[in-house]
Nucleic acid binder design. Structure first.
Length: 478
RNA sequence: GCCAAGGUAGCUUAGAGGCGAAGCGGUGGACUGCAGAUCCAUUACACGGGAGUUCAAAUCUCUCCCUUGGCUCCA
């Protein structure tokens, strides 16, 4: 039974899709006017894991994301760089998709561009106008918040409180908190509409897109915490008014902020880190681990030091996975050739052992606890800590030679599942790098060094090891 | 002013009434020619202060202190 924290009710609820077994998941995508930053990465990795887990749990997940490719920021950026706004948007959209691919975010089924849903947007505005929820002014078409008494239910605000700190509200609007559905414009990218040329407001694209692919009601809507107000609030108002159906979304999920060195990430503070900059310094998996070591709703603090910690922690899991592989591979490659007469038999571990049952039981317990942790609002930090507990016990038994192949094989399958769910790739280097020239050359150097070691030429051996280390190749003598 | 999230060992995080918290880091030991990895031990009977409820409180209640964020665009 999966429980999800619902921003709307501010409590954990048992998850039940509208349609049995089929989940419609929408997550707000980026406005493509610049390179994506590590805050985006945090959010999209979180939802990537959520989608992966729901699939693992047997649900069929349709994960939809919008791409905001028309917006003031894009236009301003295009003007300042002398580009066409739509070209600029395409360019950064491509960069975004590349970044996501590198981060291992691969579960989005469809990316929907705002500019390719102008007809749906206009249709929804038309509906809202006809039913009296929207009105037209000289500047555009606005949603009349006073017609929707539930406005503020997601962000827990009262309409009265909203206009307190407003600066210079548009006098043509009926209420200061009314928001634009259509902006009348005559410059640059504009589309024709019954209300004149212009372009859509920010909020309407999402509901137009979700209505097109999901209908007026669906399961999960996700995004960053900062989108709750006003964006998601506006979405609810639009869609529920247009369709007359409530709720538009059953579960609202929001990811916490990523801060840098305890401060909000912003361009003015100079602590703005793009995904590209990040993955120049650290493998994407390290960032993924960092992300998953904090609950998705909690704020997360990014710093070099913490990323180093994540790197070391992840190394421990990878190392463990490699150890298992090695133990099992030794068997497959040398077990048949082993004969008791040989003076130095190849090291191997027995196929079965007397403790097999015990290890299988431990594995099952760990699996159950892991699933329980993930079921409980996707508690990845707890899930990871369970893995570490398990790894320690198995390592101990590996060291003591008290574990056999059979349980190790089961463990390997379990970790394959884990790597799928969390989006890691634990595959050991030995599996990946066969037929690789670099690897062969390294093997050659290692062979030579082993001969030096036989001659007890420690000085040269150590120098070779140290120089390999400088090249990023870590040599560990057994 | 209004809303929200927090303050748990050196660092990063789980836990949410009773059971040894996990990882990283430090120190010592086992193993090793050395180093690394791994294991064992230790740092470490941790929960911002105060009061209350309870047989029992990091966990519930009250109160105080502090941090961060949102209320304009933002994942």
């Amino acid at each position: 039974m999966i429980k999800i924290y619902n921003t709307l009710t501010r409590s954990k609820e048992t998850f039940k899709p509208v349609k049995e077994n089929r989940i419609k998941l929408f997550v707000c995508g980026p406005t493509v006017y610049d390179d994506s930053h590590i805050g985006h990465a945090r959010t999209y990795i979180s939802f990537d894991v959520i989608a992966r887990y729901l699939k693992y749990r047997g649900f069929s997940v349709f994960y939809l994301q919008n791409i905001t490719d028309i917006d003031d920021k894009i236009i301003n950026r295009a003007i300042s760089t002398g580009n066409d706004p739509l070209d600029l948007a395409r360019e950064f959209e491509a960069e975004y998709l590349k970044d996501m691919e590198k981060l291992g975010v691969e579960n989005v089924n469809f990316y929907a561009r705002a500019t390719e849903h102008i007809e749906e947007i206009k249709a929804q505005i038309e509906t809202l106008l006809k039913s009296g929820f929207a009105y037209e002014t000289d500047n555009g078409v606005y949603f009349d918040v006073s017609k929707y008494p539930d406005f503020g239910k997601l962000s827990n605000r009262k309409i009265e409180d909203l206009n307190v700190h407003r600066i210079s509200p548009d006098p043509n609007k009926r209420n200061p908190e009314d928001f634009a559905l259509w902006k009348k414009k005559d410059v640059k990218p504009v589309w024709n509409s019954p209300w004149g040329a212009g372009r859509p407001g920010w909020h309407i694209e999402d509901t137009a897109i979700t209505e097109e692919y999901f209908g007026p009601q669906y399961d999960i809507h996700g995004g960053g915490l900062d989108l709750i107000f006003p964006h998601h609030e506006a979405e609810i108002a639009q869609m529920e008014s247009a369709s007359g159906k409530k709720p538009m979304v059953r579960y609202w999920m929001h990811t916490g902020f990523l801060n840098v060195n305890g401060e909000k990430m912003s361009k003015s503070l100079g602590n703005f880190i793009t995904i590209k900059e990040l993955i120049k310094k650290y493998p994407p998996e390290v960032f993924r681990f960092f992300t998953l070591s904090t609950h998705y709703r909690s704020p997360i603090d990014f710093s070099q030091e913490i990323l180093e910690q994540s790197q070391n922690s992840l190394k421990r899991i990878n190392k463990f996975y490699e150890t298992i592989d090695e133990l099992l591979n030794i068997e497959t490659s040398t077990f048949d050739q082993y004969s008791p007469e040989e003076s130095s038999p190849p090291s191997y571990i027995p196929e079965t052992g007397e403790n097999d049952e015990q290890f299988n039981r431990l594995l099952e317990e760990t699996r159950i606890k892991f699933l329980e942790a993930m079921d409980n609002d996707f508690n990845t930090p707890l899930a990871l800590s369970l893995l570490f507990d398990f790894i320690r016990v198995i390592n101990r038994n590996v060291q003591q030679g008290t574990i056999s192949q059979k349980p190790l094989l089961n463990i390997k399958f379990f970790f394959n599942d884990i790597s799928n769910i969390l989006g890691f790739n634990f595959t050991s280097t030995s599996e990946n790098s066969k037929n690789n020239l670099t690897e062969e050359l390294v093997d050659l150097i290692v062979d030579i060094r082993n001969k030096l070691r036989e001659k007890k030429d420690w000085e040269l051996s150590d120098e070779i090891r140290s120089q390999l280390d400088d090249l990023g190749i870590i040599l560990e003598d057994k």
